[in-house]
């Protein structure tokens, strides 16, 4: 009697643990890896305190937001090469408009920039959905267009913002200090809210659905074009937020094309390490955010270890390939056993 009931229960619990691991294992692993890296970093420098925590938290904000931006688009089955361009455009626009403005106005401009970026990228998503041109092609074009417009808005690095806006992202009106609260909130709240929205609302799930199989999603009543536009628009909003965060950190804008390309490439790497499958439908933006911080913290760690920065570049590329190869091998094995 007892064995008859307890065995299924135990099996049920084991299954649920397995399910949890399957669903959240990678994301949890990414964040554990981040903690391990930071723990390691503390042993490399003379003192690890509030200044260091603040530094890592605030400076990784743009990477986190851009990873979220790329993450949602990749989940929807696309890829946004223009995300870095939109970040640079938002950064340049915000810095150009905010310079010398009172705090309230800078906040309004920040909101307008984020909303504008969302609208703009939503339009990009619409173009992709309607024209059926591959995502890579359309967003390659927007990478050029966005950075070109950024150069028109702000021809050379400059501009500025208010101390209050800097405080909101960096915990200090000078952009540097030991108050890590605001930066940690700025990482955690948008990431968790966004992840909850993606996995718990109908609209969010429709984005997973079209990424997984857009034809099946269409047949089961998902409005494919609308989901695509939503994915690109929310992604655009986060790219805009990344631009505003950059403005707050540096108190200036920088329209250079290289920054856009670097932003896009880093966000792609973060998404991949974060466990979001290129091709869509699988993964969590929480993992992508963690991976964004990992790639960010690698550079102070490698610098502190005295590693040649060029070696660091090689290591980074090797790590990405290694992670992908391992994931690919496991997928292959699972595929064979099924």
């Amino acid at each position: 009697m007892s064995s008859e009931t307890s065995a299924p229960v135990r099996r049920g619990r084991a299954a649920s643990v397995r399910r949890w691991v399957r669903r959240r294992g990678w994301t949890a692993g990414v964040w554990l890896l981040l903690l391990a890296l930071i723990g390691w970093y503390t042993t490399l420098i003379p003192e690890f305190g509030e200044f260091e925590i603040t530094s890592i938290a605030k400076n990784s904000l743009p990477s986190v937001y851009l990873a979220l931006a790329q993450g949602v688009v990749v989940i929807s089955g696309g890829v946004d090469l223009g995300a870095g361009g939109l970040m640079v455009l938002s950064n340049s626009t915000a810095a150009a408009l905010m310079e010398g403005q009172p705090p309230e106005v800078t906040v309004l401009i920040a909101l307008a920039v984020v909303a504008g970026a969302a609208l703009l990228n939503g339009f990009v998503g619409w173009v992709i959905a309607v024209s059926r041109i591959p995502d890579i092609v359309v967003t390659l074009a927007t990478l050029f267009i966005f950075t070109g417009v950024a150069l028109m808005v702000l021809p050379s690095p400059g501009g500025g913002t208010s101390g209050q806006l800097r405080y909101a992202f960096t915990g200090s009106t000078t952009g540097i200090g030991t108050n890590f609260g605001p930066s940690l909130i700025a990482i955690a709240v948008p990431t968790l809210l966004f992840a909850a929205w993606l996995t718990r609302t109908r609209t969010g799930l429709s984005i997973y659905a079209i990424g997984s199989d857009d034809h099946a999603a269409y047949l089961s009543g998902v409005r494919v074009v609308r989901a695509k536009v939503t994915a690109y628009a929310t992604g655009g909003g986060f790219a805009g937020l990344a631009g505003v965060a950059l403005t707050a950190i540096a108190n200036s804008g920088d329209p250079r094309f290289d920054n856009a390309v670097n932003g896009t490439l880093n966000s792609l790497a973060a998404v991949v390490l974060g466990g979001i499958l290129l091709g869509g439908g699988v993964g969590s933006v929480v993992g992508a955010a963690g991976a964004g911080i990992i790639f960010f913290t690698l550079s102070p760690i490698l610098t502190a270890m005295g590693i040649d920065p060029n070696t660091a570049q090689v290591v980074r590329g090797g790590v990405i390939v290694a992670v992908m190869v391992v994931a690919g091998l496991l997928q292959l094995r699972r595929w064979r056993t099924q």
């Binding site: 792609l268 991949v272 570049q313 980074r316 090797g318 990405i320």
Partner: peptide, 9 residues
């Protein structure tokens, strides 16, 4: 991803 990483390396 493969060629991006190769480029970085």
């Amino acid at each position: 991803i493969m060629t991006l990483a190769m480029s970085a390396i």
